[in-house]
Amino acid sequence: MTAPSATTPTTRPGGARPRAAIAARTLRTDRWWLQPLIIAAILLFFIVYSTIRIFMAKWYYVEDYHYLTPLYSPCISTECVPGSAHFGTPLGDFPFFIPLGIIAFPIVAGFRVTCYYYRKAGYRSLWASPPACAVNEPHKSYSGETRFPLFVMNWHRYFFYLAALILLVNIYDAVLAFRGPDGNFGVGLGTLIILVNIVALAGYTASCHACRHVMGGRLKHFSKNPVRYRLWTFVSKLNVRHGTFAMTSLFTVILTDFYVMALSAGWFDDLRFIN
């Protein structure tokens, strides 16, 4: 509020004064609904696909070429097929309703749900809050991320730390995939797909806004922290492409998983380049 002596129109009596009486929800003439529709279709497809795959509990490992799908890594149950448990089986048996990817999936799902890019994508396309800029949202009230459950979005950094660990596991899996059936060095199409997936995941994780903040964004004096300033500058450059990495890595995860599933189920054979 202004001081009592100010003579701006603010001091006019009365509460909220009327806005321009325009009935239309939006006067935009472009196809503003197209982008959220496409994003919603992609996100829903991924949610359905990954849910089915998580509970499928088969066709996640190709023993000959040591391909493990990222959705089941790390596999740490005694039920994991031989060779797929790269980190042993410390947790023993899982009851039937707990999926084998129980360690990684909540982390990477949480990382993506709380991600600043996916928040934009999800709020716009799945929750229509707002569906597009300057288009009225259908909700009667709005409290944003100020209260439960949505203030949980602020925990993005927890998920970032954990997702960085999962990324290391995925890199380890990718290194193991450079082997042929005889255990010696080997490269196939699957190895390359897994490698591309790792690059996309690493780009997505490293370009994250929480990563940018942790690297140096929280500093007040860059000049006193030259190394962190350089790290921040590097992550800032990646960060501009965060949305691209987010969507690319979504597709590479699906592609990798589908390829491993197809090989494991015997739908087609891996194209081997070396061994």
Binding site: K120, Y123, R124, S129, G144, E145, M153, R212, H213, R218
Partner: peptide, 30 residues
């Protein structure tokens, strides 16, 4: 906390300030 990062502010800024990526998100992280 009301902001849900839908980035319309950045889209309309005539000065092309990266309001969300360089201002609001760093502030949220802080």
């Amino acid at each position: 906390g009301f902001c849900n990062i839908t980035k319309c502010c950045t889209e309309v800024c005539p000065e092309h300030i990266k309001i969300t990526d360089n201002g609001i998100i760093p502030m949220k992280e802080r």
